[in-house]
Simulated scan of single mutants.
Amino acid sequence: MKKKATIYRMVAPDHLCPWGIKALDLLKRNGYQVDDRHLESMEANKAYKEENGYDETPQIFIEGENLGGYDELREHLGKKPDPEEGETYQPVIAIFAVTFLMSLTATWAMLGALNLIRVLELFIAFSMCALGIQKLQDLKGYATGFVQYDLVAQRYVPYAYVYAFIEAGGGILMIAGILTWVVAPIVLIASVIGAVSIFKAVYLEKRDLKCACVGGDSSVPLGFISLTENLMMIAMAVWMMVKASTLA
C-alpha cells in the first residue's frame, strides 16, 4: 500500500504557492498517496496558521504526523536542501553554452560543414547579442551595476546605457559583416575600456562586485568571466577589421 500524506497549501485565485507545488510534486514522485487540501484565500491561509500555531504553509503530514514545510520534507526524504541564492556563474555559462551550440548549427546550416573560423565568429557575435538582450531588458538595473566599475560610466552615466546598444548592435551587424569599419572600431574601444575597468576593479583594487554583464540584479561575481567577455569582443573587433582589409 502507498504511504499516505496530507498537504495544506495555498491555492488562491491571486496566489499559487510555489513551495506547495514543489512539495506536492516531491511527495507524488516518492510514492505517496496525497490528500491535497487547498487554502483558497489569504484569509484562509492566515487563519489556518493562527489556529494551528504554524509560521508558514505548506504544512505536510506523513501518516497523520506533522512534518513541517517544504524544507523539512526534503530533509525527511533524504534530499539535499534547495541551493540558496548567492553568487553563481550559471547565467553566463548558460548563455555561452547555448550561443556556442547555435554557432555550430548555424555554420552547418549555411556551409554544410563546420568551419572553425565561422563558428568562432558566430559564437562571439551571438554571445554579444544575448548579453546585450540581458542588459536591454532592464537598462536601469544594469546601469546601476555597470557604473560601479566602468571607468567611463563613472564619469558619464549615459554611457552605461549606450554600452548595452553597442554590444547588442555590434553583435547583430557582425553576424552579417555589415558596416565593419564603423562597428568594429566602436566595439573595440568599448571593450578595451571594459577590460581595463574590470582589471582595475577586481585585480588592482580587489573590490567584491557583481557583474552587470547579464543585466540588472545580477548574481554573477565580477571577475575572470566578465573580463573574458570583453576580451572576446576585442578579438572579434580586431578580427573583423583584419578580415575586411584582406577582402578589400
Rank of each mutant, 00 (worst) to 15 (best):
V98L: 09
L24A: 02
Q90H: 13
M233P: 06
L231H: 03
G215W: 09
L179F: 15
A160Q: 08
D217N: 14
I234A: 04
S226G: 06
G141E: 10
Y48D: 05
K206E: 05
D150Y: 04
K3Q: 15
A244C: 05
I186D: 05
D138V: 02
A106Y: 11
R155T: 00
L39H: 08
D150Q: 04
E121A: 03
L231T: 00
I124W: 14
F199D: 08
Y70S: 05
M110A: 14
K46P: 10
T180Y: 13
A97Q: 12
K135H: 09
K135L: 04
E229Y: 14
I178L: 14
T6F: 11
F165R: 00
M1W: 12
K200V: 00
L222C: 02
S127V: 06
T180G: 03
K135E: 06
Q59A: 07
D35V: 05
R37A: 02
A212I: 00
S197V: 00
G145N: 08
F123T: 01
A184D: 07
L116W: 15
H15E: 15
V92E: 11
K49Q: 12
G194T: 03
I7K: 04
L27C: 04
I225Y: 13
K3A: 11
I124D: 07
F224D: 11
R155H: 10
E121H: 14
Y48E: 07
A176D: 11
A44R: 14
F165M: 02
L116A: 15
A160M: 06
V196M: 03
S197A: 02
F224C: 07
P91Y: 13
P185L: 07
K243R: 15
P58L: 08
S103T: 08
G194Q: 08
L179W: 15
I178E: 12
K3G: 09
A212F: 11
Y54R: 05
N30Q: 05
T246R: 15
L73E: 04
C17Y: 12
M174H: 12
S197R: 02
T6Q: 13
K243F: 12
L227G: 05
V183D: 10
I117H: 06
M233R: 10
I124S: 03
Y159V: 01
G132K: 04
S191M: 05
H76T: 09
K28C: 04
L131T: 00
A97N: 13
E40G: 13
F126K: 03
F199I: 06
M128A: 03
Q148K: 12
S191Y: 11
I166H: 13
G78C: 07
